[in-house]
Simulated assay, not measured.
Amino acid sequence: MSRRRTLALAAAFAAGALVLAGCTADGDVGEQVANQGYVSGDGSTRQWAVAERGEPVTLTGTDYAGDPVDTSAWRGDVVVVNTWFAACPPCRVEAPDLAAIAADRAADGVHLVGINRTDDAGAAQAFEKKFEIPYPTIDDREGTATAALQGVAPIAATPTTLVLDRQGRVAARVLGLLDRTTLDALIDDVLAEQA
Rank of each mutant, 00 (worst) to 15 (best):
1 M>A: 13
2 S>G: 15
6 T>R: 14
7 L>Y: 06
8 A>F: 08
9 L>Q: 05
11 A>G: 15
13 F>S: 13
14 A>K: 00
15 A>Y: 02
18 L>Y: 09
19 V>W: 04
21 A>N: 11
22 G>K: 00
24 T>H: 10
25 A>N: 05
27 G>K: 01
29 V>I: 13
30 G>A: 14
37 G>V: 12
39 V>K: 00
39 V>L: 11
39 V>H: 01
40 S>W: 02
40 S>V: 00
41 G>C: 01
41 G>W: 02
43 G>M: 07
44 S>V: 08
45 T>E: 12
46 R>G: 05
47 Q>D: 11
48 W>K: 06
51 A>W: 02
51 A>H: 10
52 E>D: 15
53 R>K: 04
54 G>T: 11
54 G>N: 03
55 E>C: 02
57 V>C: 01
57 V>E: 07
59 L>A: 10
59 L>P: 14
60 T>L: 02
62 T>K: 05
63 D>R: 04
63 D>N: 15
64 Y>M: 05
64 Y>D: 04
64 Y>P: 08
65 A>E: 15
67 D>K: 14
68 P>R: 02
68 P>L: 08
70 D>T: 09
70 D>K: 03
73 A>S: 14
74 W>N: 12
75 R>I: 02
77 D>W: 02
78 V>Q: 05
81 V>P: 10
84 W>D: 00
86 A>K: 09
86 A>Q: 14
86 A>Y: 07
87 A>T: 10
88 C>V: 04
88 C>T: 05
88 C>R: 03
89 P>I: 01
91 C>K: 00
92 R>A: 10
93 V>H: 11
94 E>L: 11
94 E>C: 07
96 P>K: 09
97 D>H: 13
99 A>S: 15
99 A>P: 01
100 A>W: 04
101 I>D: 10
102 A>P: 00
103 A>K: 12
103 A>V: 03
105 R>N: 07
105 R>I: 06
106 A>S: 14
106 A>R: 12
107 A>S: 13
110 V>R: 03
110 V>C: 10
111 H>D: 12
113 V>E: 03
114 G>L: 10
117 R>C: 00
117 R>A: 14
117 R>I: 12
119 D>A: 04
121 A>N: 01
123 A>F: 11
123 A>C: 03
124 A>T: 11
125 Q>M: 15
129 K>Y: 12
129 K>S: 15
132 E>Y: 01
132 E>A: 15
132 E>Q: 13
134 P>Y: 09
138 I>Q: 11
139 D>V: 06
139 D>Q: 07
140 D>P: 06
141 R>S: 08
142 E>T: 14
143 G>Q: 07
144 T>G: 13
145 A>L: 06
147 A>K: 13
149 L>C: 03
151 G>A: 05
151 G>I: 11
151 G>H: 03
153 A>N: 07
153 A>G: 13
155 I>L: 03
155 I>W: 00
155 I>D: 01
157 A>I: 00
158 T>F: 02
159 P>M: 05
161 T>D: 06
165 D>Q: 03
166 R>I: 00
166 R>L: 12
166 R>E: 09
167 Q>T: 07
168 G>T: 00
169 R>V: 14
169 R>C: 10
171 A>P: 09
172 A>Y: 06
172 A>T: 09
176 G>C: 04
178 L>D: 12
179 D>L: 02
179 D>M: 05
181 T>Q: 13
182 T>P: 02
187 I>H: 11
188 D>E: 14
189 D>A: 15
191 L>H: 03
195 A>G: 15
